[in-house]
Amino acid sequence: MSEKMAQTAAGAGSDFDRLTLDWYIDKLVQALVFIGGISAIVFIIGIFVFISREGFGFLLGEFNFKEFFFSPNWRPTSETKETFGILALVAGTASVTGLAMLIAIPFSLGAAIFIAEFASGKTREFLKITVELLAAIPSVVWGFIGLAIMNPIIIETFDVPVGLNVLNAGVILGLMAAPIMTSIAEDALNAVPDPYREAAEAMGATRWQVIYKVVLPAAKNGLLGAVLLGVGRGFGETMAVLMATGHSINIPTSVFDSVRALTATIAAELGETAAGSPHYQALFTIGIFLFVITFIINLAADLVVRGVKKG
């Protein structure tokens, strides 16, 4: 009798034994997902540490705050006196990004409003897929379009000597940034609950009144986030800008001036410098600067997009 009871107890014990194969698989998958999850953070920190270390020597040694930010002279290979002023490069990047946003914001918001509010069924699916395809075009292809197609068109239309300038790069960058901005702006519009639209329509609002008075105000944080991400994209873009700006150091006074961008400078010059030299370190300092700027823009975008979910 007691033997039998002991057996039952042991049997029950094994039924509740949690160390089965499923349990091990579960733990293994949890571990893998955890490693995958934190690796992104580890890599980003690693990149930042690496860039900082390479640029640090310059920051401590030859770095002159006033010259670096306020001198338009970027002459890293001068025989007589090397100067590292990024003002002209910042002006180049800012002018191209600014023009790009002037082009991309109306286009992308218009496209997003059309896709989210007016298009339906197959048209809508087709447009969404097309926009996503556009976002996937490699930047070097955009650069090629700037170089081979836009360049002669600009020379002919405006009768200017060089077609690789702020206008060219701005248009190319605007077209590049528009799809991703459209995609995010459309998500923001879709996140506006449908009962809002229904309520406004039931009161007799026209489609445009619904969009203008209800949907856009409700989605404004998400739309601002889309614009900021577009700015971040424009700031960080390298290849297309390198190919379409003309790559000459210049503070532009018109859209037909050639300029050079921060990113393009790093891409073009890093391969030709001696590792550890002041020039090499100055380029990494530009890298830190870009990293900080894009980080701030992305963080700001993230914060405003989050704001919409809380409110």
């Binding site: 809002y196 229904e198 309520a199 009161m203």
Partner: peptide, 11 residues
Amino acid sequence: GMVFQRPNPLP
């Protein structure tokens, strides 16, 4: 005028 099942004041 129409009143809906779930109150839907505008934001």
